[in-house]
Write a protein that binds this DNA or RNA. Sequence first.
DNA 1: GTTGACGTTAACGTTAACGTCAACTATAAA
DNA 2: TTTATAGTTGACGTTAACGTTAACGTCAAC
Lengths: 162, 162
Amino acid sequence: MTMMPTHSSSALAPNWRIADMAAHLNITTRAIRFYEDKGLITPKRSGGHRIFSAIDRKRLEKILSAKRIGFSLEDIKQFLDVTDGHVTGREDLLCRKADFEAVIVRLRRKRRDIDTIAKDMQDLCAAIDNYMETAPTEGVFQFAEAYAEKFRATLDEDFLHA
Amino acid sequence: MTMMPTHSSSALAPNWRIADMAAHLNITTRAIRFYEDKGLITPKRSGGHRIFSAIDRKRLEKILSAKRIGFSLEDIKQFLDVTDGHVTGREDLLCRKADFEAVIVRLRRKRRDIDTIAKDMQDLCAAIDNYMETAPTEGVFQFAEAYAEKFRATLDEDFLHA
DNA sequence: GTTGACGTTAACGTTAACGTCAACTATAAA
DNA sequence: TTTATAGTTGACGTTAACGTTAACGTCAAC
């Protein structure tokens, strides 16, 4: 007797059900249905049930990446509409392209924001470490004071450049 | 008669009113009041009116940076509570530090997400440019098809590594 | 042919981060 | 002193992105 591949997945041509997808991507089935309602994905159907391909999965992964960096589902739809070829007019395409270029600029700023905040967080962690070593039981407020001092230093620095 | 510095601002020791702050930071006064309600800022008062110092401004700028990269106001409050010295217990501080280190890890992923999406956007813009040059009036659907082809290529590549 | 795990749609509930009045007050200028 | 121009505190409205039932369909297995 030959082994029949299970309905839920096959290594070569995977076709997952909604729960499999949700588990793989660490989201809820509700979210996936919601994305379909919003027109972000259109998985195939088999007797009313949704069937997800590898392409569907890749698409969902991109959607989640975009979501993590703050894009709304509507933003994402704008992008997908173009890659899917739902925007065909020359004027429309050029308009979208301008939008995307503005987005790229904002992404650069977002990268800078991340670096700024990450540095602050690392400094804060280091300050906590330092506080733990140098102030065993006494001087409870020294930590905040030291941090505030550092904060005022960056403030003065900004004044010089402004 | 000596020039009296105006109430609204002085270069050396600026004290802005809420509308000035809002204009400088490109947000609404409502947002600023909301941040105060949530305990993120505590500007001084002068007869009921809020007065903002350079420190308040810097603090707000940090808040907006954090917001842009997806932190909720509650997240931001967690961070500020520590830097302000409202968290004094050793256990509490170590606990917060662990949270912050987890955040730093997520920020690294967010950076990667940004790079991924930015590259996709740049590719898409380039594809649009290319399409504009090579397909003057005919073959409306070639653009989407070309993009889909490229997409399948990255998909196959992922299969090799999985 | 029934069971049980999983799927479906439809509809209302929830939370965050403000927007939007409304009614009142404080300050600066005339 | 009056007036114009902000500023103040509620209180309710709004939007996005789902969560949460409710009520019912499907399908492989026993």
